[in-house]
């Protein structure tokens, strides 16, 4: 069972929910893997003591032009979907940061002037937390425009023996989130009771509906004052699966980089209850 934890808005509590869910299920005796796919700012590891056991490079293949062979026919520039090659009668140049590494340029070149060479865009790190949770994260190199390949490579390390794989997704609804959502069984949307939370929740709901993945919502920092999120969920028939209250103890444990379900142990049962609901719903 693969569960993605995501939200349209940043800072709603994706990592809080993903890490506490993984921890609580582990405490219940399940075999858990936690993958942090937020490769631009992976920070799930802060809540754990991770013993990293392996690290690998994530490379994309970028075109290398043999200028002695190139006839400046321009076929590569025409074929490139991302305008990563510019060809003029005298010169040819590659924009590495625009290149997505698809390789079509080398395929269409009629004189074999284009070879491909690897360029590192990030890393995948794997290990195990002190508690024994299998852990992995993607780390995008600073300045790289897209973490999609990093996420794809990280997801190749999904442990088929794990009972539950929790994916801590990046925020938003663009390519990195869509990559995270590929082949997951359930999407947990984390939101907060504010107009901003509601606005971005609607975007996420649209994205997940398009991908046809069952979903439910966790409402974080709940204090009962802003009810429009609940109203919206009722209207759209989206299950509200858990409310995490606006609670100074929870905020304090977060600020100290601690899992709040470790400090407030009643939450271990609450997160396991959340999982039972997810299990029931993903089978529908």
């Amino acid at each position: 069972m693969k569960i993605a934890v995501l939200s349209g808005k940043g800072g709603t509590g994706k990592t809080t929910v993903a890490t506490n869910l993984a921890y609580s299920l582990h405490r219940d005796g399940k075999k858990i893997q936690l993958l942090d796919t937020d490769a631009e700012e992976p920070n799930s590891h802060i809540f754990f003591d991770v013993n990293y056991t392996s690290e690998e490079s994530v490379n994309i293949l970028i075109p290398k032009i043999n200028r002695n062979v190139c006839t400046h026919c321009g076929k590569c520039a025409q074929a490139c979907e991302f305008s990563a090659i510019s060809v003029s009668p005298k010169h040819i140049m590659v924009f590495e940061y625009l290149c997505h590494g698809c390789g079509v340029c080398s395929m269409v070149c009629p004189v074999n002037a284009i070879s491909e060479e690897p360029k590192e865009i990030g890393k995948v790190r794997l290990g195990r937390t002190k508690e024994g949770i299998s852990f992995g994260e993607g780390v995008l190199n600073v300045g790289e425009p897209s973490p999609v390949r990093v996420i794809r490579q990280l997801k190749k390390h999904i442990d088929q023996n794990a009972e539950v794989v929790v994916l801590d997704s990046p925020p938003g609804t663009s390519c990195p989130v869509v990559e995270t959502l590929q082949d997951v069984d359930f999407a947990v949307l984390v939101t907060e009771p504010t107009p901003f939370g509601l606005h971005d929740l609607k975007l996420s709901v649209k994205a997940i509906s398009d991908l046809n993945i069952p979903m439910g919502v966790v409402l974080n920092r709940y204090d009962g004052s802003y009810v429009k999120v609940e109203k919206y969920l009722k209207e759209e028939n989206i299950p509200l699966m858990m409310k995490i209250p606006y609670d100074v103890d929870i905020a304090r444990s977060y600020s100290n980089g601690k899992l709040f379900s470790e400090v407030k142990s009643e939450y271990v049962a609450k997160f396991n209850h959340l999982f039972q609901k997810i299990e029931a719903m993903s089978k529908c």
């Binding site: 305008s83 090659i85 510019s86 060809v87 924009f95 625009l98 425009p145």
Partner: peptide, 9 residues
């Protein structure tokens, strides 16, 4: 992204 090189092309 890439509109600049595309326009130059």
């Amino acid at each position: 992204h890439g509109m600049g090189p595309k326009a130059v092309q």
